[in-house]
Every structure is written in C-alpha cells, then in structure tokens.
Write a protein that binds this DNA or RNA. Structure first.
Length: 882
RNA sequence: GCCGGAGUGGCGGAAUUGGCAGACGCGCUGGACUCAAAAUCCAGUUCUCGCAAGAGAGUGAGGGUUCGAGUCCCUCCUCCGGUACCA
C-alpha cells in the first residue's frame, strides 16, 4: 500500500478506536478535567451538512490535543431529536415520528463516526429517549415548584412562599391560586401566534415578519391557554452574569440587546374629575406609591421623565384595561372600530406599516402630575400592551414616534429640551419651534422650577420628586418577555401536569403535578397524527386511559400541550455527565467535578434563544441546588457559516450544497477535517472550494511520502528516514513547528497551525536525511487534525499502540535561536537594504552596519541624519533630511 | 434606524498587536522526470513602468498621530449577521 489511501486506513482506525474504547471518559476526571461540548444536531432527514463538521472538528482537535497534554477529557455527542419535521413526516406518511427519528439518528451517527471524532459514544443521548425526557419533565416540575423571591433575587420552593393573612383567610383554594400566580411555570390566556397552516401556536421568536419562521405561513393572534415560563424574573441575573463569561463581546451584546433592560420612571396620571385632582394628589403624598392600581389612574412608563413637562397627550394600547372606562359615549363607536381593526392586524401589518401612525381619541383627559395640566388620552397601536404599563405619556418634541403621531393628528408640540451645542443653530431653532424632533440630551426649558437642569440630573431629580409625593417611582423594564413554553404538537415532551375535573367532567381550574415517582409521562399511542386544524393539541385524541387518570379517587385530564423543542436542549450538557443515572438527572458529585462546560462551540444562530433558555434553566437548577455553578458554558465560540462555492448560503434551491459523504468518499475524512480547518478563521463565514479540498489532500499525500516509501509494494519507511541527529536548521524547524502548532491550537487558530505543519513538510521533503525523531514529533502534532493518517504513520514508525495518549511534543526555546539575524534597514521609512548581524549585537554595531550598507549609504549621502531608530531584532530606520 | 462583525494579490487567507505587507494553500507560468500522459519534484508569481539592474505605487475612501500605520484616532462608503413602534 504505497500510496496514501484514506479509504483503507480510515475505517481501520475507526474500528480500532471503537474496539479499544479509546475515547471513553472516566466517571470523574482524573486530574485536570476538560469538558468540551458541541451543540448537538437536530437529526434532519437530509443527513449531515458540511457546516456540522466545522465546529465538531474544532472541538475534536482541542480534545485530542488536550488528552495528549494529560487532561481528562469529556467529549460527548447526542441528538436534539424532537421537532416539527419528524411530525410533519408522520402526518404525511402515517409512520410514527419515532421511527423516522431513529432512522435519521442512525444516519447522523454513521456520518459522525465516519469523520473520526473522538466522542465517548457510550454517553450518547437523544432528547426523544424516554429515559432522557423523564428528566426534562422532572426539571419542568422543579421550575413549576419554584417562585422567584425578588428580595433575595433567587428562585425558592413554592412551599416557602409567604402567604398573606388575607389570602390564607380565604381558604386553601385562594392559597393555591396565590401560589399558582407566582410559580416560574404558570398558565396564561395571553394572545398567542396561531398558525393555521402548521396547526400550532408559535413563540414570538418563531414568527418572522408576521409569518412562521418555518415555512413562511401566515400567523394570526388569538387568545389561548398556554404554559409560560417566568424567564423575566431572571432577566437581571441573565444580563449581569454575562460579565464573567468568556464569550465573544458580540454575542454578549446580542443577549443584552434581547434582554433589553432599560431604566426610567413610572408615573401616575389622574383620570378622575379635574376638580378632585388636588385632593387625589395630596392623598397620594401621604402614602407610598401604590403597587396595585386604582382605576382612577393611568400609569405610564418612560425613560425620559425629564420630558414630563412636554407631554401634550397620552397613548394607551388598544388592549389596555382602561379603554372602556376612558371612552366617552360620543367616541365609543370610533374606539370600538379602531380596537377591532387593531385586533385583526397581524404582526406583519403592525411592523410593515410602521411609519403610518394611527389612533383615536377616547374623549377623556388625564392630568399631568407635574403641572396639573389635563391632556387628551388617545388609543394607538404604536403602544404595545405587552411592554411597560401599556400606556405612555407622549412627548412629541422629543420622541420620533410621538412626533409623527402629533403631526398626523395636529396635536401641540412643546419643546422642553434645549439641544446641545453640537446641533447646528438653525436645527436647534426648528426644535424650539416644534418643527423638528430632538431625542438627545440637553438642558431643560419650559419645565417650571426644573428649568436649566441637564437631562441626566433632571431625570434623577424629577424621579425623586415624584417618589416623594407618591406620584411615581424609579422603574426598570425589559424587552424580554416570558417564555411561551407550550406547543400544540404530538412530537414533544408531554407536560407532567394534571387538570382536576369535577363530577361533570369539566375542569375545576385546579392543577397538580404528576408525582415525581410516576415519571416519565410517555407519549400515548395515536392512530394518526393529522392535526384537526383547531388549536387544541393532537394529544386530545389520545386514548381515554392515558388522557383521564385517576389519582387518589379524583379524576383528572392530562395536560395535552407538549414542550417546545428548546426544552431538551436546555440541559443536555448535564445529562452527558451521567447519562444512565436512574435516580437523578445528574449525580451531584459528577456535576461538581466536570461543570461548567469549558468550551462550547456551535452556530451563531443559537446565540440568543438556545443560550438564553439554557442559562435560565441552569439558574433555576442552581437556585434549587441541583447544579453547583451559576452559569453552564464558561467559554463559547460560534463557528462561521460555510457558504457555497458561489459565496451564497448553501441551499438545495441554489444547487450549491456540498455533501460530506461525497467528500469523504473522494478525499477521505482527514482531508475534509483538515480542509474545513484550513479554510480560514473558525468564526468567519467562508466559501467552500473543491480545489481547496484537493490542496489539503495533496498536503496529506506529501506528509505521507515524507515518511512512507511510496515506491515500495509494502508499507515501509521512506529510506530518507533514519536515526540521524537533526541539524541546527532541522531543530529550528521542529521546535518552531511544535511551538506554533501548540499555541495556535490554544487560540483555536487552526488555519495557521496547519500552515506551520505545511512548512515543516516543505522543509523535510527537501532533506534526504530525515531524523526519525522529527518525523515522530510531526505525526503527533498532526494527529489532532488528521487522526487516521497520523495513527497509520505512527504505526509505521514502529509503535503498536494508539498515539491518542502519547505525550504532546514540547518545544525547546534554546533550539529556536539563530546565531545571526537579518535586519531590514529603512531610510525615511522606506526599505533600502538588509544587513546580517549577530543575534546579540548591540545597538551601536547594528547602526554602524546599517550605515555601512551601500544602498543605505547611497540614500543618506549628502544628507543630515536627523534620527536613527534601532528596534532590536526587528529593524533599523534612519531618518535623514535635505 | 439601532447593535454587532468585516473590507488585504486572480481566489481562500497570514501578519509577535505600531516594525520587512502578502506566511500557507489554491490557481497560473516555466522547468525536470516520461516515448507520451497522469502522478511527483523544482523554480517563479501584488500591481505599474522596464530587456534588465532598478524605480514607483499599494491593505474600501479621505484626513490625522508617529521615525514608522493593514494595525491607533476622526469622517465617510460598501458588504454580512442580528434587531426593529420596547416609550
């Protein structure tokens, strides 16, 4: 076998690793542990995409190098196997989604093994395994059993929730209701995104421009009972704890942006009769700012309390509870029509028509707490019920949207901020004339006793002023919404929740958790998977004995919603630690030993949702003592997208999809791995190139021929290899390569590491005396990148065991040094010549040699030397004048 | 609009963080080997002018700091990703 033949050597070594359990990780790390995790794939019917092996190869290199460096490495793989496509396939074919899912997993597993990744396959899990989702359900029950204590800023067992005496006095049902309102998992009737085409409700995040992210079907809003997870309670911690993570700043910014924390003030506008305003105001001054609102008050949220004096109208969302009360009889018809129109609007309409502001006047007025002025209350859909208080004070002079609205409806515009000096005079004049909007900071005008204050100080002063009088308070808001956690699908985790029924078979509204020891709640048998086109979930068609269990003599109906696909991926990194544990999701001793994940690599498409959801669950588990670290993923890296050869996103429709199977068949797995790492920086988007694959394949062939005699009929070493002592030049090449490759792997700079190894082969293929020791070191350096060929070469070099645990080569700094060094000499910054000096030459002799250089002398002749810069080891620059 | 990231040869990309721009690979050109081809090996390859020696220009554009800028600062342009009435 003289030629490099990946088709022969790759299956051989894959079988060897499997047979010898080479990459099985210990239960607990022996010495330094390293947990390296890939984002596990959704096993789609299309099989592996070339994007998958990019991140997987990167982590594999890190793991293989770390093992050789003596680390105890945990490197698992599994499958995120719940999801819509399998269910849609089942609807079309009538085949149970589990069958298709398992088929897809088999394909993925085969493809992953074909690429020679050093996973501990003994830990493989799939989120659809009943033994896995048993614990997903268990974690849901933990969340259900938790309330968030705002004082301690942490989740606590619901049994520790203090029950106010007034509630307790109303009996156990009231207590239950009080608790249920505060659980981290709660039910809500909120309007949801119902997609008739998919037959399901979607999360806000799954709706793009009013259409389903998957399939692009229209989505309408309708109210439906849903399970929600109170992720907003953790918003502050989710934002704060980003600080300690070793993540790219861009990804952190994405998450911060998504959480969208803003600080400002809430303020109450009196909507009772104007004559009673003074009485209301002084009554307010005697107590604290009320948490619960009376219905004579409109509460608003603003980030610009300094513009309170500029409020010329109010806006409430069409869904605001005070619409009824505020609408006067002569405006009722118009308001009703507007509300209906707004309700019918899809999100698409609301966003696409974003420039057009619409609204109606209610006929009522609210009184500005700072100046007692009565201003009209409008209804407009540019104010969202789901953010802040669902009501705003409108300051058209200093808010783009309010300005547009005021212009549309001829509402007065009153400037209260004098623009700063960076604004041109004529623009500032326009602002002061109410002809232009100005949203930045400045100095207060038209604001009574606050005139002359700068924006920042004014904000603080007015907030305090409001708080003192019981009229307002400082407030924080988030763009982040609670997580809509239920789906009307079959192929998802069932909720371990039972709804109590009365004797007539109607739900009483009381809910109980399935007892822990009765988990898992498996999916029932269904005769068919077709949706019925109504929002009720397919599980409503489950057999009676599944659907209506009896517990302690009471009849219940099971929850028929299922969990979203995100659920399984929220904690899989924990199960990998202890995948077969039947008593707990993970053994605490094991969890403490391995967590947190040291390196997590995956696509940037999960930068917000998956990572935020997983962090949220982790924090609840942390609060409940299940895990020991506040964050799950210490270091995160997002691999860049691999584009087609035409520089476009790979897509079937574009005909530019590259199939890993084809590449492996033609070039081998080592070439695929090496190419994907050589394309460019891991995090950058890069176009595929078949010629590039061919290039790295040639390199492997060169490396092969450097060591193997390719003219022989049997595998034997190239006759140039022998136990010769390395020359000084050889030593420099060897140690420079060891140093660079080692450092580059640590920096995840795989493309440059490969370039250094190419330089190594370029040097040694020119030598007809190749020291065996040099070849061995090289093979070890190459092995994390191209493990199959490396194992084969290692064996040819006379070793009879895997190199997976051979000590990693160490470089010797003293062997890198050269006796002389070539220094560039510049005159006035332009390169004019090069001198060769001894490495330890002093500045004076370097300068003398530089001046003596004929070319340099030519350019300095007859000119006055102004300055000479000597940077030892780098260059000389002589500055002349004249 | 806002928030991120990026613009370097024919192409993918390097460049100790302020010090020889273009490592390494692809492609291309020439050569060796061969009856010939494939494979392999060797040499060259930023652009412009020049037979050459050489000279000049050059990291999206323009300005600045510096002995010296792909790298730092200011202004702007283009592309990619995210987000979008969040008060």
């Amino acid at each position: 076998m003289p030629r490099y033949n990946p088709a022969a050597i790759e299956p051989k070594w894959q079988a060897y690793w499997e047979q010898h359990q080479t990459f099985a990780a210990p239960r607990l790390p022996a010495g330094d542990g390293l947990y390296v995790l890939d984002m596990f794939p959704y096993p789609s019917g299309n099989g592996l995409h070339v994007g998958h092996p990019e991140g997987y190869t990167a982590t594999d290199i890190v793991c293989r190098a770390a093992r050789m460096q003596g680390k105890s490495v945990l490197h698992p793989m599994g499958f995120d196997s719940f999801g819509l496509p399998a269910e849609e396939h089942a609807i079309r074919t009538g085949v149970h989604p589990r069958i298709q899912t398992e088929k897809n997993i088999s394909t993925f597993r085969r493809q992953l093994k074909m690429l020679g990744f050093s996973y501990d396959w003994g830990r493989e899990i799939a989120t659809t395994d009943v033994d896995y989702f048993r614990w997903t359900q268990w974690i849901f029950l933990q969340i259900y059993d938790t309330w968030f204590d705002p004082d301690e800023q942490r989740g606590r067992p619901i049994s520790e929730l203090p029950i106010p005496g007034a509630v307790a006095a109303q009996g156990p049902d009231a207590v239950c209701a009080y608790q249920d309102e505060r659980r981290l998992a709660y039910q809500s009737e909120a309007p949801v995104n119902w997609c008739p085409a998919l037959g399901t409700v979607l999360a806000n995040e799954e709706v793009v421009d009013g259409r389903s992210e998957r399939g692009g079907h229209p989505v309408v809003r309708m109210p439906l009972r849903q399970w929600m997870l109170r992720i907003t309670a953790y918003a502050d911690r989710l934002e704060q704890d980003l600080g300690g993570l070793d993540w790219h700043e861009g990804i952190k910014a994405l998450q911060r942006n998504w959480i969208g924390r803003s600080t400002g003030a809430e303020a109450d506008f009196y909507i009772g009769d104007k004559s009673s305003f003074d009485g209301w105001k002084s009554a307010r001054g005697s107590g604290p700012f009320p948490a619960k609102l009376a219905d004579d008050v409109l509460r608003i949220y603003t980030t610009r309390p300094d513009t309170l004096f500029g409020a010329t109208y109010m806006v409430i969302a069409p869904e605001h509870p005070l619409v009824e009360r505020l609408t006067t009889p002569d405006h009722r018809a118009a308001v009703e029509a507007y509300r209906q129109q707004a309700a019918a609007k899809s999100d698409l309409d609301r966003t696409e028509l974003s420039q057009e502001k619409t609204g109606v006047f209610t006929g009522s007025y609210a009184i500005n707490p700072v100046n007692g002025e009565a201003i009209p209350v409008w209804i407009a859909d540019y104010v969202l019920i789901s953010y802040g208080t669902g009501a705003i004070m409108a300051v058209p002079a200093h808010d783009e949207r309010d300005f547009a609205f005021a212009q549309e409806y001829s509402i007065p515009i009153r400037p209260v901020v004098q623009p700063g000096d960076h604004i041109p005079r004529e623009e500032a004049a326009k602002v002061l004339a109410g002809e232009q909007v100005y949203v930045e900071s400045g100095v207060a005008i038209n604001s009574g006793q606050f005139n002359g204050l700068r924006t920042q100080e004014f904000k603080e002063r007015i907030t305090a002023w409001l708080a003192q009088r019981g009229l307002g308070r400082q407030a924080v808001n988030y763009k982040l919404r609670d997580w809509l956690f239920s789906r009307q699908r079959f192929w998802g985790e069932p909720f371990p929740i039972l709804h109590e029924l009365d004797s007539a078979g109607k739900p009483t509204g009381r809910v109980r958790a399935v007892p822990e020891e009765q988990l898992p709640v498996d999916l029932p048998h269904l005769d068919d998977f077709k949706p019925h086109g109504r929002p009720e979930p397919p599980l409503d068609k489950a057999p009676e004995e599944w659907l209506y269990p009896v517990v302690e003599g009471k009849r219940y109906k099971r929850e028929t919603n299922t969990m979203p696909q995100w659920a399984g991926s929220c904690w899989y990194y924990l199960r990998f630690l202890d995948p077969k544990n039947a008593q707990a999701p993970v053994d605490p001793a094991i969890e403490q030993a391995w967590m947190p994940v040291d390196l997590y690599i995956g696509g940037a498409e999960h930068a917000v949702l998956h990572l935020l959801y997983a962090r949220f669950w982790h924090k609840v588990l942390y609060d409940r003592g299940v895990v020991s670290t506040p964050e799950p993923f210490q270091k995160l890296v997002n691999q860049g997208m691999i584009l087609g050869e035409n520089n476009e996103k790979m897509a079937k429709s574009r005909g530019n999809v590259v199939n890993p199977d084809d590449i492996v068949r033609e070039y081998g797995a080592d070439s695929l791995r090496l190419y994907e790492m050589f394309m460019g920086p891991l995090e950058a988007a890069k176009p595929w190139s078949m010629e590039g694959v061919n290039g790295v394949c040639n390199f492997l062939g060169r490396a092969w021929r450097m060591i193997i005699d390719d003219r022989s009929d049997r595998v034997q070493l190239n006759p140039a290899i022998g136990d010769w002592p390395p020359t000084d030049e050889d030593q420099r090449v060897i140690h420079r390569t060891i140093k660079s490759v080692t450092e580059d792997i640590a920096k995840l700079s795989f493309n440059t590491a490969i370039a250094r190894m190419m330089e190594f082969t370029n040097h040694f293929t020119k030598q007809d005396r190749r020291p065996r020791v040099a070849m061995e070191q090289f093979v070890l350096l190459l092995s994390p990148f191209a493990p199959h060929i490396a194992e084969e070469l290692w064996q040819s070099l006379g070793h009879d065991q895997t190199l997976a645990y051979e000590p990693w080569p160490q470089h010797d700094e003293s062997l890198l040094a050269e006796a002389t060094i070539e220094l560039p000499v510049q005159v006035n910054g332009k390169l004019r010549g090069k001198i060769v000096v001894s490495t330890d030459a002093d500045q004076g002799s370097i300068l003398a040699a530089a001046r003596a250089h004929p070319k340099v002398a030519e350019y300095t002749a007859g000119k006055a030397e102004v300055k000479a810069v000597v940077v030892p080891g780098r260059l000389v620059n002589i500055v002349v004048k004249g």
